[in-house]
């Protein structure tokens, strides 16, 4: 039995949050969503593309999932704050996945702008879930200003490089008083399982699923990996040893000395 995850008072049975970016169409997204069993999905805000058909909100509503708007593409605290306010109007939710990035090439968070935006949005009564680097001190600062969770990257967005600094993620988990959600870097199921084994409370995953050859199969795979990782963590792994430790008893071992 998996314990529910609680973020800002909301109970969630699923430990997987699905990012909706990168799916080739709404049909594949809907199928992957079902396979993922996610209860929360991220969405973004953009100027209308006249060629787009149907609203993603119809897909998410039909699937019965909650919308978590993001501030993707914002480079300054000011832009992120306005985008969050637009999202609150558009989706009637106070929840915001706060992204403030430093440049286009790495999409790494800009720590200074991120903390400033987080503080302002918490003051404006948002439930702030910041996408952050794997820096335990920055995570503490974000928690101190009132963020409802911290969402460290394992590696850059869309890189599929997994968790490049598991020790930092472990330190963040140890010290955090709010849920830790691994956000970005997952490339395949084992990365998601590893995040949960390290102590993360949930995994947010977009590209690994949406850009997989078979997104629906990968959605199921990563869902199972998240559950497996959580279960493995609660089961308690054996310590690592430099040398072997036999699992078969040595007692009662027969002796095959040749007669002299």
């Amino acid at each position: 039995m998996i314990e529910p995850l609680v973020i800002a008072g909301r109970h969630l049975r699923s430990r997987l949050i699905l990012g909706t970016g990168g799916f080739v169409n709404h049909e594949v997204l809907a199928e992957a969503l079902t396979a993922s069993r996610a209860e929360i999905c991220t969405v973004a805000l953009r100027r209308l593309d006249p060629s787009s058909r149907g609203s993603i909100l119809d897909v998410l509503e039909a699937a019965g999932v909650e919308v978590l708007p993001n501030t993707a593409g914002c480079f300054t605290a000011r832009d992120a704050i306005i985008t969050a306010q637009l999202a609150r109007e558009a989706f009637e939710t106070d929840w915001i996945k706060l992204e403030v990035i430093g440049d286009d090439k790495t999409l790494l968070p800009d720590a200074v702008e991120l903390v400033a935006a987080a503080e302002a949005l918490v003051d404006d009564r948002f439930v702030v879930l910041p996408y952050t680097t794997d820096d335990p001190i920055l995570a503490r600062r974000l928690e101190d200003v009132g963020c409802a969770a911290v969402m460290p990257l394992g590696s850059p967005i869309g890189s599929g490089m997994g968790i490049r600094n598991p020790y930092n993620i472990s330190i963040m988990v140890e010290q955090a008083g709010v849920p830790v959600v691994l956000d970005a870097g997952v490339g395949t199921a084992s990365d998601a399982a590893f995040a949960m084994e390290l102590g993360c409370d949930a995994v947010l995953c977009a590209s690994a699923i949406s850009r997989a050859h078979d997104p629906v199969a990968m959605a199921r795979s990563i869902r199972l990996a998240v559950e497996a990782g959580l279960l493995a963590r609660s089961a308690g792994r054996i310590p690592r040893r430099r040398y072997a430790e036999a699992s078969t008893p040595e007692e009662g071992l027969p002796v095959f000395d040749a007669p002299s």
Binding site: F23, L45, P69
Partner: peptide, 10 residues
């Protein structure tokens, strides 16, 4: 004026 809508992302 900026007018925005929900799109896939994140």
């Amino acid at each position: 004026v900026e007018i925005v809508v929900a799109v896939q992302g994140g």
